[in-house]
Design a binder for these strands. Structure first.
Lengths: 119, 119
DNA sequence: GCAACTAGATGTATTTCGCACCTAGTTGCA
DNA sequence: TGCAACTAGGTGCGAAATACATCTAGTTGC
């Protein structure tokens, strides 16, 4: 397996909407809690996803120069981004419904086998 | 959006496990009912996924030559394939749990906004 | 003075995916 | 007879997504 879609775009939008604003390195630390799939997300994918959301107008960024440490590119969700997040959530609701049905019906397949006595 | 992972591998394994055996064109017709995502799945992707599952030993195929119509490559799930399906289902259970939590927490974000009076 | 950590970025190879296109058998109809 | 529509499978290629390696640069602690 392994190729559970990264699907990090909606998670990033969600985290940013909830936190108000954040930056890549920080989001990378929060992502595992919501990452859809077990494999850790590559930082490159995350940075590029943020940049792409910005070019699409869903985020805006500015440089934050903390008194200590390297500069951070801080992102905020725009109105367009909030709308995009809601579209994502509608899509994910459907996704979730289909997935649950699949899991339910797959469990029915598994249960009646019981070949433990044939050993 | 659009890139809700195709995630068709577990669906194909599930459908084949339930039906006993089937072929690409038929599975393509059943897929939309379980497709995780709204966009229709390209037939190329489906055929290639079946071939890949076969090279990994999760499926076996033989040619069926019906009295009417073109030949069909009929697939059956192997023992390895059934095991693989169960692994997939375990992964998708986790996936579903995380997804539901994301949806729940995102709904909390949306609800309290209510800017309808500011127009 | 150097290792470890924070923070962001690029460049490139690989993988995945979708589109266009092809073969071939059958059915229906004009 | 000819051809459109449908069934059934497949290939080749380009675009997009992804992963890996590598780079710069500031700070902290030893």
């Amino acid at each position: 397996m392994g190729q559970l879609s990264r699907l990090i775009e909606p998670v990033l939008l969600f985290l940013l909407a909830r936190k108000g604003h954040s930056y890549g390195y920080d989001l990378a630390a929060e992502l595992p809690a919501y990452a859809l799939g077990p494999e850790p997300v590559d930082r490159t994918t995350l940075y590029r996803c943020l940049r792409q959301l910005e070019t699409h107008g869903h985020l805006v960024s500015h440089w934050d120069l903390p008194t200590a440490g390297p500069a951070r590119r801080v992102y905020c969700v725009t109105a367009s981004g909030r709308q995009h997040l809601q579209e994502w959530m509608r899509a994910l609701e459907l996704f979730s419904g289909t997935l649950d049905r699949l899991l339910r019906e797959a469990r029915i397949l598994e249960s009646p086998v019981e070949e433990s006595l044939t050993t």
